[in-house]
Amino acid sequence: MSAVQGKRTGVEAVAAKGWFRAHKWLILRRISQFSILALFLVGPWFGQWIVKGNLAYSYTLGVLPLTDPYVALQSMAAGHLPETLGLIGMAIVVVFYLLVGGRVYCSWVCPVNVVTDAAGWLRDRLGIKGSVHLGRNTRYWILGMTFIGSAITGVVLWELINPVSMLHRGLIFGMGMAWTVVLAVFLFDLFVMSRGWCGRLCPVGAFYSLIGRWSPVRVAAPKRAACNDCMDCFEVCPEPQVIRPALKGEGKGVGPVILAPNCTNCGRCVDVCAKDVFAFGLRFNNPVSTAQPAVVQTEIK
């Protein structure tokens, strides 16, 4: 859309706030993603073992176990209980994402996010229109299928083809042909389906969205009255459907906090808004009305 209008997403924000403030959360996110990856890589690359393992399970400095609860639950569905450290690691990860929001995993940790963000960015730059339609709840069906399938086959099913683990494992333990799977995800998002992988298919993200269903840390639109409908936040958001209720909820009794579990807390909307409508906050701070006296919203839906 932005290409049609001859305006690139976020230009206004850069003009209003400066490049750095208009990319603050994006930069922090990339730092987070690459720092985590670097922690995994200093072992195999430099022989300094801070973190061993990969995103399925890791052991940090010989004290901190972290287990991917999705993989562990598939293993349990297949009839196998992890050992003590595996269970402790699982509990730590679940509690962490209960607090910060499950899909923080997607936007702040997952290495595939960089790939699909790149595809989304390039799609926008090239002005690629048209996208195969697939419901955003497809991922939950796939999620359910992986659990049932694991129980039936006795194999940790999604790990047979999971591009997330393939990429992360590949970077740390040797890539082999895993890059073809990653390239497929990139091209799929670029040409076949806008925000297709993370937004519609990936059951890992779907799983984490369920963990973070009631997490306190949320993006909110406390200054939604200042919104000038530039649509940049919708353009830039990987899950644009989560924004509308909060941003346009004034007068419908909906508070400004984005409560949809599929918000990844990536903060791009915060960055890209020239009017500083969005901010990180807590879900409890969610008054029904944030309207200034001057603003009147009329909605007919």
Partner: peptide
């Protein structure tokens, strides 16, 4: 069904015997 593909066994093998399947 039990292995979660974390590679900890690979890391702790002193002889680099093990590898994770690509």
């Amino acid at each position: 069904g039990a292995c979660i593909r974390c590679g900890l066994c690979v890391r702790d093998c002193p002889y680099n015997t093990l590898e994770l399947a690509k």
